[in-house]
Design a protein around this nucleic acid. Sequence first.
DNA 1: CGAATGTTTGACTGGAGTCAATGAGGGTGG
DNA 2: CCACCCTCATTGACTCCAGTCAAACATTCG
Lengths: 242, 242
Amino acid sequence: MATKCEFCPLRRKSLFAPMSKEDVSNMQRFKVGELVVDPGTPILLEGSNSPQLYTVLHGMGLRSRLLSEGQRQVVNFVFPGDFLGLQAGVMGEMGHSVEATTKLTLCVFDRSELWAFIKADPERGFELAWLAAVEEHFLGEALTTVGQRTALQSIAWAFVRIYLRAHASGIASDGKMRFPFRQQDLADALGLSLVHTNKTIRTLKSRQLVGWGDDNIQIHDLKALAKIGLTTLETPKTRPIM
Amino acid sequence: MATKCEFCPLRRKSLFAPMSKEDVSNMQRFKVGELVVDPGTPILLEGSNSPQLYTVLHGMGLRSRLLSEGQRQVVNFVFPGDFLGLQAGVMGEMGHSVEATTKLTLCVFDRSELWAFIKADPERGFELAWLAAVEEHFLGEALTTVGQRTALQSIAWAFVRIYLRAHASGIASDGKMRFPFRQQDLADALGLSLVHTNKTIRTLKSRQLVGWGDDNIQIHDLKALAKIGLTTLETPKTRPIM
DNA sequence: CGAATGTTTGACTGGAGTCAATGAGGGTGG
DNA sequence: CCACCCTCATTGACTCCAGTCAAACATTCG
């Protein structure tokens, strides 16, 4: 039973820009169905050109790139509200792969309809650019982290960013959130080795700043983490949702 | 004497997507003037919301972010054809600063006209998203470099990417191009120290793969560099130009 | 000529990687 | 019900790539 855009539970969250009634009905026409995939399923492949685009309704995943020697770079964590396939939609080719980490529920759109969709409502073209810019903004910050922060700073930064993002999406409160990833995933996101990542997380745990286990994160002292991570507590900026 | 979009010398280069006559005249209406700035001039500031957007007609620059402890991450090198201020234009805030490295000639647009511009021609909204996606794509690759490649691989990767980009813009040939940056800039782009960057460049020079001095790069063996850098020789994908 | 900027070297240090082994659950097939 | 396996977290010992420090060069410029 597909969710109607009109009743989309995500759209109301503070993280997302409000949509007019017309936008919503336009969106609804563009939506061709809903897809549920199991954990571990690949959704989009680096270098490919998917015929479909997705918005994450529920669940979490990973965006990643592979290097010829087998190393993996996690480019971002996928949260509800994320739009998948934009690069393929506009450039014709994905720069990274996307896979499901939990069970994922996705709204499905046809890439071939994208152009008609935008023509019908030019504002959506603008918002597509907005979405891409949000991702670009994040990647610049991530690049700065991997390039300039120490391991301790990087991990503290990651906890802060992840928590604030989840909180703004309405899937975290009281410092508690679901985080169904492995230490290896965080290590690959920050360009650190698994062992060093583990020891660094341990340090933060022993200082009573965070807890992480059983797929859940518990932030005990967000402010202290932000200080260590050389970052701020500012809420993620509002973004459109497709 | 402002360049007419109709006669824009950049637009014809293979790197850029063709534009219809109508697109060009639309573009021309959007363009409010031309700006020439001296080397070292800041163009856009991280965190700010510029009232103007720019397309680089001529010259080179840097996109960078600063960390509270004084470290700098160079997010990308700015080449002719690059669009500056997109993040401010759609999200309302720049994620990085942009500064001129050489004398820069910029086409100037009013941010306040951006919306009217897109409404008049929805395809340009799509292309704005395309531009942002190109940048997102690059940043994912850069993140992978900084996170996963060794110093030698990173620097080889950078030379390959930079040369191919310049070549596709028509500002490089026979392995030779202008590159008016300091080793510190490359070090900050790759998350390496100046000293280590210097020694690593030295290694590549001694292997006769590349030359760099007097603001010029000479690629002697692109293929070998690509192999070391774990990357391919594929030409940058076509992108729109604003 | 002295000051400034950028490149190059050498010596030393240290943060993070690698290797390897042990724990700690969670399944599952006999 | 339990032995065995598999995945992931945790530790300790050791190594090494890259960072830091410091000084020498090379150019340019006022």
